[in-house]
């Protein structure tokens, strides 16, 4: 067993775990954060995407033991008391069908927009290229990301280009 301390959604957790426990299993089984999904278990589908130190990773490909001292954001940590603008945008455009891919999609979107709120459609598609939607609802998801850009700009007071906002 190894002892790890991992900060997840702003809270520090110390646990003794098996050295080969994946971060995905740490989140779901140790912390009971079930929003992170397991899809392929091979890093292909992106359902298990989380943000580690500002970058998206597949939590099925990372040992929790390797994450000692790291900061993780899961879907549970994206919104607060209210939904995050990305989540509201996805709901408004109807980007969610079965929903299984959506936590990963939202986190890939967040990682992109936190760095580049003016991302082009090409950059949006690239950012979510590691997240497969088995309902194939990509068009609505891309629309959702674009609406999220508008909402996030509004909340930053940048919506009006004339500078009055």
């Amino acid at each position: 067993m190894v002892e790890v301390t991992i900060t997840v959604n702003g809270t520090s957790y110390t646990r003794k775990i098996h050295p080969l426990m994946r971060l995905l299993d740490f989140l779901r089984d140790e912390l009971k954060l079930k929003g992170t999904k397991e899809g392929c278990g091979e890093g292909e589908c992106g359902a298990c995407t989380v943000i580690m130190d500002g970058r998206t990773i597949n939590s099925c490909l990372v040992l929790a033991a390797s994450c000692d001292g790291k900061e993780i954001i899961t879907i549970e940590g994206v919104g607060g008391a209210e939904l995050h603008p990305i989540q509201r945008a996805f709901l408004e455009v109807g980007a969610v069908q079965c929903g299984y891919c959506i936590p990963g999609m939202v986190l890939s979107t967040k990682a992109l927009l936190d760095k580049n709120l003016d991302a082009t459609e090409e950059e949006i598609k690239e950012a979510i290229s590691g997240n497969l939607c088995r309902c194939t609802g990509y068009q609505k998801i891309v629309e959702g990301v674009k609406l999220a850009q508008t909402k996030m700009k509004e909340s930053r007071g940048e919506a009006c280009e004339c500078g009055r906002s």
Binding site: T56, I57, L61, E126, N131
Partner: peptide, 9 residues
């Protein structure tokens, strides 16, 4: 090289 999540690791 692969998807962003893989490139990051």
């Amino acid at each position: 090289f692969a998807a962003p999540q893989i490139r990051n690791m």
